[in-house]
Write a protein that binds this DNA or RNA. Sequence first.
DNA 1: CACCATTTGTTCGTATGTATG
DNA 2: GCATACATACGAACAAATGGT
Lengths: 76, 76
Amino acid sequence: MAINRDGADYLYVQLADDIRRRCRSREWAPDHRIPPITELMAEYQLSDRTVRQAIGLLVDEGLLVTKPGRGTYVCP
Amino acid sequence: MAINRDGADYLYVQLADDIRRRCRSREWAPDHRIPPITELMAEYQLSDRTVRQAIGLLVDEGLLVTKPGRGTYVCP
DNA sequence: CACCATTTGTTCGTATGTATG
DNA sequence: GCATACATACGAACAAATGGT
């Protein structure tokens, strides 16, 4: 998926939408670790701040949990 | 109140604590606007990012609401 | 109506700290 | 101690919303 930078929507919202999609599609299954922030930065060509903001949104929603030093996981 | 930078606690947590205190003490009463981010930055000598993080915490708690273009208000 | 000042929102960059294994 | 990975904190610029002139 490509991020649309033409003001269609905020980048972190677009990224959160795509992560939701990949979780629902079971590409990233429950209880498994999603790629680290550094990899998401490279894949989507976004800064760490934007990636963190998207993840923070999904953590608030209860879709993800972050474990310092371990990674970010999909909630069961 | 002074922010303790000697690692006692995260700066944004200390700031959130102090804002809570000022709301509870009615220095900043319900339904009234608190100082804008720029003023809080100057008063506490913190970056805008740190101030926003503290405010975001309190918005999540339901203590504050932010209205773009208007300011940040204390919830009744 | 257009314009401006104020205020919050988003985004990128960089450096250092903390937690886990 | 070291490597990995998330967390905090500084700086900077531009965009968007609101209300008044």
